[in-house]
Structure formats: structure tokens, C-alpha cells
Computed example of a mutant assay.
Amino acid sequence: MIRVLIADDETMMRAGARAILSADPEIEVVAEASTGREAVELVRRHRPDVALLDVQMPQLDGLDAASEILKSDAGTAVIIFTTFSNDDYIARALGEGASGFLLKSGDPRDLIAGVHAVADGAAYLSPEAAHRVIRGLPTARMARGSAARERVDRLSSREREVLTLLGEGLSNAQIARRLRLVEGTVKTHVSSILTRLAVGNRVQAAIIAYEAGLIESVD
């Protein structure tokens, strides 16, 4: 069972998200918060697998709440769930270590898929957010390709294999099946990769994999 916390200052939005997630028998909404500060406190109390956070909330916005949650020892992954899709929000969310970025205007199925993916250790971006990230990568790849290759060269051959599949959006379980490894071994490799690359989440690692040339360009 995937345990989820929903944080949004609008009661109707919380109810809508709860209704969508509750339609999946593998997801349980364990808590709701109306402020960022309350979200942080409830995460510490309930330790959900995933925290679904709106950006604009009183007391503490969703991005600052995400930062506090990810620095805690709760082991909770964060998805930013918002009406805003500008590049600054996406960049800051990923920079804080969020594993997902979803738009409230998107397909409800994206919300369920995103919760499953993030709970399984993968990253999940809404199609528009993913397009914005990928669109900015070619320039970044040219500017930072050499530095990215130097960082990737520090990895073992197995870690580079894992990084490539991680960058293609595969979860730990999918990587394990592809490489015929135990899932726990993949988790160990991913943890080592994040440490060696000095990044805070899988999306940042995937960007480095792209810049280093491990992943082909997406048109």
C-alpha cells in the first residue's frame, strides 16, 4: 500500500485529489494539510511514502515545505502538484529534490501514475514539465557536457549502466529486471550514483546522464 499525504490550501482541490487517488486500491491517503507548515508536521507524524504538495500555501509554501520534508528522516518522496508550470517553479522544485512535478490541469491518470512511479523510486514529470526540461537540455549539454562526462567517469561500469536506465525513466524494479539484479542492489547503486554525482535526486542525475551523452536526444 502506498501511503500519501495531500497538502493544498483549497478544500475542493484536496477532495478532488483524494477522490482520484482513492480510486486506486493500492493507494491510501493517510493525511491532509492546508498549510505548508502543517504538511511538514504531518509528514513527521505519519511518515507517508509520498507527499503531494501545492506550491502556493500559507505559512510555508510548497517548495519550502518540500525542502524541509526532504531534509528530514521521514523517507518521504515529494511530488509538486500545482497550476503553475513556469520554468522557475520546475527548476526550483527539482533543485529542492522533488521527484515529481504534476499540473492540476493534467490527466487524472497522471496523478495516479506519478504517485506509483515516485513511490517506486522513479521520477515523474507531467508531459509539459518534461518538455520544458528537455527543451532546455541541448544548450545545457553543450555548456556542461565536459563537466558531466568527468563526473560520470567517476562511476563504475555497472553504475553507468544503472544511470543510463535511470535517465530513461525506469524505476528501481524495472532496472533490476533489465540488468537481472536484485532490486536492493539497484537501490544501493542508485544511492552511490547520487552521492558520486553530488546530486539530490534522480531527475538531476538523469540530466547529467543526458549532458554526458549516455542518453540520446529526444526530439
Rank of each mutant, 00 (worst) to 15 (best):
N201F: 12
L111G: 09
S105E: 14
I112D: 02
E216A: 13
F101D: 00
A176V: 09
S171I: 12
R45C: 05
E161T: 02
E96W: 07
V50E: 03
T195S: 08
S157Y: 07
S192F: 09
I207Q: 12
M1N: 09
R141S: 13
A119Q: 05
D87C: 01
I79V: 10
V115Y: 07
A77V: 03
A205P: 08
T185F: 13
T35C: 01
V133H: 08
L163R: 04
V40F: 07
E216L: 10
N172F: 12
A198R: 14
H46V: 08
I90D: 01
S157H: 00
L155C: 03
R45D: 09
G136Q: 04
L163D: 06
R45Q: 09
A173S: 10
A98Q: 00
A117S: 07
V182N: 15
A113N: 04
S22T: 03
Q59P: 01
K187T: 11
T195C: 03
V162T: 07
E168R: 11
A91V: 11
D61W: 11
E32L: 03
I27P: 01
I6D: 04
T185G: 14
L166G: 05
R177N: 14
A31M: 06
E128G: 14
G184I: 11
L155I: 05
A19Y: 10
R177C: 11
R3Q: 14
R132E: 06
A205R: 03
M13C: 12
E183S: 11
T164I: 06
A117M: 05
A209N: 00
E159S: 08
V199M: 11
A198I: 04
L165E: 05
A19N: 07
V4K: 04
H189G: 05
T82Y: 15
L214S: 07
A77D: 08
L5H: 09
Q204R: 13
A130Q: 15
D61S: 06
S34H: 10
K104H: 03
A117H: 10
R202K: 13
N172M: 10
R92C: 08
R154W: 05
S22C: 00
M12L: 15
L166T: 02
H116A: 09
T188S: 13
T76F: 01
L181N: 08
G100L: 05
V199R: 08
I208F: 13
R149S: 08
S72W: 09
A7W: 04
D8E: 07
V115E: 02
K104C: 10
P138W: 06
A130G: 14
S85Q: 10
G95C: 02
L163C: 02
T11C: 09
I90A: 06
E159Y: 05
